[in-house]
Amino acid sequence: MIKLSELHLGFLTALGGMILLFASANFGALPGQDYGAGTMPRLIGWCAILLGCFMVATSLKNLPEMLRPHLADWVRKPRLAIAALGCIAVIACYILFAETVGFIPMSFISLLALMLLLRTSLVTAVLASLATTLVVYYGFSRLLMVPLPRTEFLSFLG
């Protein structure tokens, strides 16, 4: 990931402000008043534009330095970048498949995959994944009555 300089952040902030102004242009006011749903987003938008312009203006002094891309340390190490993507992939897979697969298998597979990706030994990963899955399942599903996605063939677990 590129670490953004004051110049980049300023530009993005001002751009965000402009988008916000555009997106809130059609919000109506309270009946008989000048203020309403659009007042606050427009104020935030103007603040963002002013802040962005200020950041860009103050960073122009060191323009060459500000334009040089700075990469985060972990980007240069593929293993760490994959670990970060793995965490996001685990959440995305849970969102997509938990309802179909059920909580217990999904949680176990997610934990195991992520632990192995982060280089936990196989035995520790299997035991820790199983224990965590069961503790979370019983804690939330049985004690707190949260309807976690169920798996038919594992229904004997409760």
């Binding site: 959440i91 949680s107 992520l114 982060l118 936990t120 820790a128 994944s129 965590t132 899955t133």
Partner: peptide, 8 residues
Amino acid sequence: TLMPMILI
């Protein structure tokens, strides 16, 4: 080992 547990 800990971070995957926290994530779940």
